[in-house]
Simulated assay, not measured.
Amino acid sequence: MADHSAGRSKVKLSIVGAGAVGTAIAYACLIRGSAGALALFDTDADKVGAEVLDLNHGTQFAPPCRIGGGADLDVTTGSDMIVVTAGAKQRPGQSRLDLAASNVALVQSLTPALLERSPDAVVLFVSNPVDIVTHAAITATGAPPGRIFGSGTVLDSGRLRFLIADRAGVAVENVHAVVVGEHGDSEITLWSGVTIGGVPADVFVAEDGATFDAATRAEISQQVVHSAYEIIRGKGATNLAIGLSTARIVESVLRDQHRVLPVSTLQSGTGDSAGVCLSLPTVVDGRGAGRVLEVPMSDEERAGLRESARTLREVQATLEG
């Protein structure tokens, strides 16, 4: 049985689903050296076999990693961490709520089966709608707090930082900004806490005179929300950036890094967000998603977060009630 004590180097990562997102995550983790062993599972035996072969052909050019996989869920046995990307695809005429219902049913049966084979694994959900399926997985298993969590708004926050950095004319590493709430249309940009090289966004002036006035902030927030739709319209799926952002989350767990990331966790306590899975800055380490930080927010941002939680709570009640 794997030892999940903090500080121990964890080695086996399993990825459930060998579609565009799952294979992008596997590729990112391979070239970054995120794990010592990778296992891919997919119900399409030919597809997963081809992806495993293709990845193995590149192992000479990447950090050492053992790669296997197949169409039998047993390939995930003994995992230290499992990333779930599997889920039904939205069909023409199918509502998002219908899609959510399909994926909730899937994770309710899949997650217990995964934990039966890897009882100590940390499980990360990337499947959409991520907040809803993460809540369903936690409910279906009764897992300890933080052992199951979702990728949340980590990628959304990356998109936000890129857009701010591009306008400000600075490196993206010098921008600190976070998106919270639902990974979706009701997500909230915490502009009150955005800094650019330590300078608050509302007083920052770029070399070319560009500023972050109310109109610019609203425009950037809209771009963050709608950028996925733009990518899907152009190439059919978002996969490369989610592959890289997921690799960062994986490394936070497998290397016990204690990174603060806006992942989706089951919120506790008596606040407006209690009982739903949504994203807030959270310490991610070898045990999974840990302490949620109390982030200062403006009254408008806090109201937006309450509305985001209400939206998620209503969908959860519809699907799991």
Rank of each mutant, 00 (worst) to 15 (best):
M1P: 13
G7W: 11
G17W: 03
G22C: 11
T23V: 14
Y27T: 14
Y27C: 02
Y27I: 00
A28C: 09
I31H: 12
A45W: 00
T59V: 15
A62D: 06
I67V: 13
G70V: 00
G87C: 03
G87P: 04
K89D: 02
Q94Y: 01
L97Y: 08
Q108K: 15
L114H: 05
L115M: 12
P119Y: 10
F125E: 01
S127Q: 09
S127H: 01
P129G: 03
H135G: 10
A136S: 02
F149Y: 15
F149V: 08
G152P: 06
V154L: 13
L155Q: 10
L155T: 08
L160I: 05
R161G: 12
L163E: 13
D166K: 15
G169A: 13
V180D: 08
D185V: 15
I188Q: 14
I188K: 07
G193A: 08
G197V: 11
A206C: 09
T211N: 01
D213M: 09
Q222G: 12
V225W: 00
H226C: 11
I232Q: 06
K235Q: 14
S245D: 13
R259M: 02
V260E: 12
S268N: 05
G269P: 07
T270D: 15
G271P: 11
A274V: 05
G275Q: 03
V276N: 10
C277I: 01
L278Y: 00
L280Q: 14
G286W: 07
G288I: 04
D299T: 14
A309N: 12
